[in-house]
Amino acid sequence: MKIVVTVKQVPDPNSNLTLEGDNTISREKEVVLDPGDECGVEEALQLKEAHGGEVILVCMGPERAKDAIRKGLSMGADRGVLISDAELAGADALLTARVLAAAIKKEEPDLVICGTESYDGSTGMVPPMLAELLGFPQLTFAKKVEVDGSNVKVHRQTADGYQVVESATPALITVTAGIAEPRYASLKGIMAARSKEIKQVAFGDLGVEKGEPAETIEGVTDAELRKAGQVIQDDGSAVDRIVQVLADAKVL
C-alpha cells in the first residue's frame, strides 16, 4: 500500500506566546513538524507495518521545511517530496491544494493522510480541496483507521460520538491529533533519515496555474480586546470572590 502523508512546518506551538504592549503577539521563531501531521505520519507507519508498502511525505514550504520532512523520515517514513518556490510564499488554501495535488498525483497513492487542520492556520480547508482535486472520497476527522484490502474504514469523530465511514481506496483521510501517539525517532532512525531521499520539486515543474488569491487584505485593525478585570492571588478568599461574581451574574 502506498501512503502519502502531507506535512507542514509550523511555528512551535510550545514556544512562548506573549501579548506585547501594543497587543501584538510575539512568538519565538522556532519551527517544527506540525504536531497534527506527526500523528498522521504515525498512523501511516502503523498501517505500513500492518499491511506493507511505502510512506511518502509531501510538503510545500520554504527550503527549511526539509527539517520537518527529515523529522518524519527519522520516525520511519521512506522518502520525501518538497515543493519549494519563492512564488508560493503566502499561497492560499486553493493554491496549496493544487500544488499538493499535482505532486501527489505523480505518486499514485492508495491513501492520502492529512491532519484535520494545521496548527498555525487552523482552518482545515486544504484537505477537502485536495480530495476534490485528486478525485478521491474524503474520510475525515478519523480517530481510528482500518484498512482491509482495497477498503478503508474510519471512525469519524462527531459532536456526540462517532460515525463509521467506509470507502474504497484510493481515498483521502484526515486524522485527529489523538489518533496515535507519535513515536520518538530512534538514533538509528535519525541516522537512516540522513540518507533518505527528499526530492525537490519546483513550482514550474508541476504545471499548476497560480490563479488569483482568494482575498485581498484591505486593512487590519486591532481586535476588540476584552478589558482586563481584576487579578487576585488566592489567599483563601478567592472562592468567596468567585461565588460573588457568579451571584452578580445571576447564575447562582
Binding site: I25, A214, T216, E218, V220, D222, A223, E224, L225
Partner: peptide, 18 residues
C-alpha cells in the same frame, strides 16, 4: 469579510476576489 488575523490580536478586512 472580517477575519481574525495575526494570532487573533488583529482583525483583517478581506475583500473576496472570486
Amino acid at each position: 469579510a472580517k477575519v481574525p488575523y495575526f494570532g487573533g490580536a488583529k482583525i483583517a478586512s478581506m475583500k473576496a476576489n472570486a
